[in-house]
Design a protein around this nucleic acid. Structure first.
Lengths: 146, 146
DNA sequence: TTAATACCTAAACATAACTTTAGGTCAATA
DNA sequence: TATTGACCTAAAGTTATGTTTAGGTATTAA
């Protein structure tokens, strides 16, 4: 059993944020003691791990809430939950691809500014055509401009 | 030269969003015709490509604005700009790693629900210990719970 | 000439996800 | 006994990133 302060440290989430998640219905298994103080057990901790993951993958709080609700309904929602994770998987994979595309542009820009720094000016590098670029830089450029 | 409507289609950004970017100082090279209508030239288009990339990589509008301002100051800001792209590169790489971590949890959950679906209940799979999991699933599990 | 279309502005509104504030409880310590 | 520290609530405030609204201009098509 953990207090809200301990959990706050464990997950690097502020205390108000944890209360907010509770209020929003993300922590369905959260217990309270006699005087109303939150007691986080292993189930809630595991829920927070899942929440962390779903948030990172771009899911909104109300969707996570819906998922938590499904969990509370038991075995009849197994297929729904599986489908949700499958969608989330696709969504993360798309996101990673997008980030890799952005990385290509960034790599191109890093090369570009390295060249500019050599000359102390953008003048020369600004006019380089794709065919004059080093091969792997051209690849970045083409990817970013396709 | 493109109109705002054309650019909106090209980048899949709404017309109000483009006007908003302009107002926020992201489109410094944007020209206007006599009657005040925006004319997007190749330089603005390229700026939008960079904006798209920086946004995808998690940068905020006011930081992008600052970068655009640096660009307008010319060669004296080359090093600053290089540094910014280098930081952004690190930031994207961190982000990709985070997403891959989330993907591990998701892959574990997909396996978990596949097993549960086979049984029509979570009862059995819920109690499987890491050592009883298929090897690659255990890897996901360990990664997600480390 | 009138009507449609594509543009313009300023300002208000919307939304998600928190954070801050103001006021209160409760148990342990000086 | 008084104070400190960790918790509680409800409600208001904040921030980023747009979107919507209301009212106006300019060009073209019927």
């Amino acid at each position: 059993m953990y207090t809200i302060g301990e959990v706050s440290e464990m997950f690097n989430l502020s205390i108000p944020t944890l209360r907010f998640y509770d209020k929003e219905g993300l922590l369905l298994d959260l217990e309270r003691d006699n005087s109303g103080i939150r007691k986080f057990n292993d189930k809630t901790i595991e829920a927070l791990r899942v929440i962390e993951c779903l948030k990172k993958s771009g899911m909104q709080i109300k969707e996570i809430k819906e998922f938590m609700h499904w969990c509370s309904l038991g075995d009849i929602t197994i297929e729904k939950r599986k489908e949700m994770f499958l969608n989330q998987k696709k969504s993360i994979e798309r996101e990673i691809k997008e980030l890799e595309k952005a990385l290509h542009m960034i790599n191109f820009k890093c090369w570009y500014y390295d060249e500019a720094i050599k000359d102390s000016t953008e003048k020369r590098v600004k006019n380089i055509t794709p065919n004059q670029m080093p091969h792997e830089i051209k690849t970045y450029y083409d990817e970013a401009h396709k």
